[in-house]
Amino acid sequence: MNMTTAQIIYEQYKVLPKRVRNELKQLILSEETEGTQSSLMDELEESLKQVKEMREGKRPKKSLNSLFNG
């Protein structure tokens, strides 16, 4: 089954903690009102590519703490 980018993003979204999901919703809504939705989507797609590379062993894994703190 081939998934679309939107389906992949949604699957990743579903496994996030509720607090992070809420923060992401607010970020998306605020980005939409500022007219920079495409930049947010670009960042999400890049993040998903990085997660895929981590799972494939092509990139070192990061802890949640390092992800949230930059």
Rank of each mutant, 00 (worst) to 15 (best):
K58C: 04
V20W: 02
T36S: 11
L48P: 01
K58H: 03
L67K: 05
M54V: 05
L27I: 08
R59K: 07
K58S: 02
P60S: 02
R21H: 02
E23N: 15
E23K: 14
S63E: 01
T36I: 12
S66V: 12
L29Q: 14
E23P: 02
M1D: 10
K49R: 13
E43H: 15
S38E: 15
L24K: 03
F68E: 07
T33V: 15
M41Y: 06
E46V: 09
L44I: 09
S30P: 02
M41V: 09
K49A: 08
E31L: 00
R21W: 03
E56A: 04
S47F: 14
S30N: 14
K61T: 05
K49D: 11
M54N: 01
I28H: 08
S66A: 13
M1P: 04
K61E: 04
Y13C: 01
K58I: 01
E32R: 13
E34I: 06
K58P: 00
E45H: 07
K58Y: 03
S63I: 01
T5W: 09
E43S: 15
L27K: 10
R21Q: 11
L40P: 01
S66F: 01
L16D: 02
T5V: 14
K61L: 08
G57F: 01
R21F: 05
S39G: 08
E53A: 13
N65S: 15
N65P: 06
R55N: 11
L27A: 13
I8Q: 07
E34N: 10
Q12P: 02
K18T: 11
N2Y: 13
K58F: 01
L27C: 07
E31T: 05
R55Y: 09
Y10H: 12
E46F: 07
I28T: 10
K49Y: 06
T33I: 13
L44Y: 00
